[in-house]
Amino acid sequence: MANRFHKARFKTIVRNYGLQLHNVKSYASLYKPNAAFRVSTDEGDFLIKPFYRRKIGNKLTTKQQIVRLSSYIQKLKEHGYPHLPNWLVTKSGGYWVTQSGRPYYMMEWVEGGQLQSEQDYENLGSALATLHNICKGSLPPMSRCTRNQTKLFKMQDILFRRRLPTIRKRKGAGKWFNEHGGHCIKLANEAWGAIDAPEPKHIMEEEINHPALIHGDVTSPNVIIHSNGLFLIDWDQLRIDSTYYEIVKTLLNTTNYNQVQIDALLRGYEQLKPLIPAERVLVSSLFRLPVEAWIAARGIASGRGSRVFRLLERTWDARLSAIQWMDEWARRQLSDIAFVPH
C-alpha cells in the first residue's frame, strides 16, 4: 500500500487525466522499491509509472527522453500497434504529467498470465516482428546500431580476457572460470569470425537505411497474456535501435534456453518478418557471445556479481545446447555463407 505522500501525489496526477483517485498500490522491480503503481479510480484501474532517465548510451535529459518516448508511442498508436496497452492522454493532450521534477505516465492496467505455452512464444515473436515493421518509412535515419553494439561487446570481451587470469585464482567462482573460461573465449572467437564475415557485415552497414523501433526490455514479467491477446508493458526503453540484438535479448530473457520456446518465438517472428541467411548468422552469432560470463566476471572482479554468477553456473549447459540449436537454425537456409560454427 502506498503511503499518504504517494496517495496525495497520485491524486494530483490522475486529476490531470480527468479521473478521481480511490486507492494506490505500489509494485517493486528488481532494482526499485516503487517501480510502478496500480491506481484505482472512478473509471477503473490503471498503471502509473515514474519515468527515469536512461543513462547508458544516451546524452539526452530526462525531459528530452520522455518527449522522444512519447513521440514513438504516438506513432505506435497511430499505426494501431495491437500489443501496446492504451496509453492515456491528459485533458490538455499530453502524454505525461510532471510531479516534483519527475515525469509520470498513465496506461490501462492489463491483468493476465505469463508466458507458458508454445503458442504464447509464437505470439511473442509475432508481436516483436510487428513492432520492428510497423513504423517503416516514418522514422528518422538511425545509426549503425548493431555494429555499435558489437563494438561494445568486443570491448567487454577484451576486458574479460584481461580479468580471467585473476578471476581464476578466486575461491569459489575461480573453479568455474578455470574450467569454462577457455570455452568462453572460443565462443567469442567463433562469433567474431561470423559477425566480421562479408555478408553479416553488409547487413550491419545497411541497417542505417532501415530504422526500426524496438521495445528495449522484453523480459518475462513485461509480457502479459490477456484474454484479448498478448501485451507488452514497461515501454520506457522504446527507441530506434538494433532489431537483431532485440531478438537475441528477448530469447535470453524469456525462454530459459528452452529450445521449443526458442523455436516458437523465432517461428512467430519469421512468419511476419523473414530473415535472410546473413541475418540468421548475425542473430545466432550475437546469441553465441558469452555475455553473461563477461557480466559475472566484471561483478566478481569488483567484489559483486554473485547472483549473476549463480545464474550463469546453473544455466551454462542449457546455454550451450541452445547455442548448438541456434547454429542449426542458422544453417537451415545457408548454402552460400562461408562460416557456420561447428
Rank of each mutant, 00 (worst) to 15 (best):
A330Q: 06
N228E: 14
Y269A: 06
K75M: 11
Y27P: 01
T150Y: 14
L265V: 04
L286Y: 02
N133G: 05
H132P: 10
H226M: 07
K55C: 03
G299E: 07
P277K: 00
A297P: 10
P274A: 11
S284E: 11
I203G: 00
R307Y: 10
N34P: 02
L238Q: 04
R144M: 12
Q261E: 10
A278I: 00
K186M: 12
F339H: 14
G125I: 02
L320Q: 15
L282W: 04
K11Q: 14
Y104R: 01
L139F: 07
L19I: 03
K175A: 13
H132Y: 04
N123T: 05
H183A: 15
H202Y: 07
L252V: 12
Y31H: 13
L272E: 03
Q156F: 12
A338W: 01
Q156P: 03
I203R: 01
L272W: 02
I337V: 08
Q74S: 15
T146W: 05
R161L: 08
I262N: 15
R239W: 07
P274H: 08
W176N: 06
H180K: 13
S138I: 03
F160C: 06
Q119K: 14
A318Q: 05
K136P: 01
V260R: 11
R307D: 13
V281N: 07
L272F: 03
S117N: 03
I323E: 03
G18K: 00
Q324K: 14
E313D: 10
N16Y: 07
I295N: 07
L30S: 15
K75H: 12
G125K: 02
H132W: 04
K77E: 15
E190L: 13
P290Q: 05
K75S: 14
L21G: 13
K63N: 13
A338Y: 03
T41N: 01
E111N: 12
Q116A: 14
Q324G: 13
I73Y: 07
I66T: 08
Q261G: 11
N253K: 06
T219F: 05
L152N: 14
Q116F: 09
E199T: 01
W316L: 09
N133K: 13
L21W: 10
R304L: 13
D120P: 01
P141S: 06
Q261A: 14
F309D: 04
T150I: 15
E313Q: 12
Y27W: 05
V39C: 09
D236F: 05
I224D: 11
I158T: 11
A318K: 04
S220F: 06
Y105S: 14
R310S: 15
K186H: 09
N222R: 00
R319C: 05
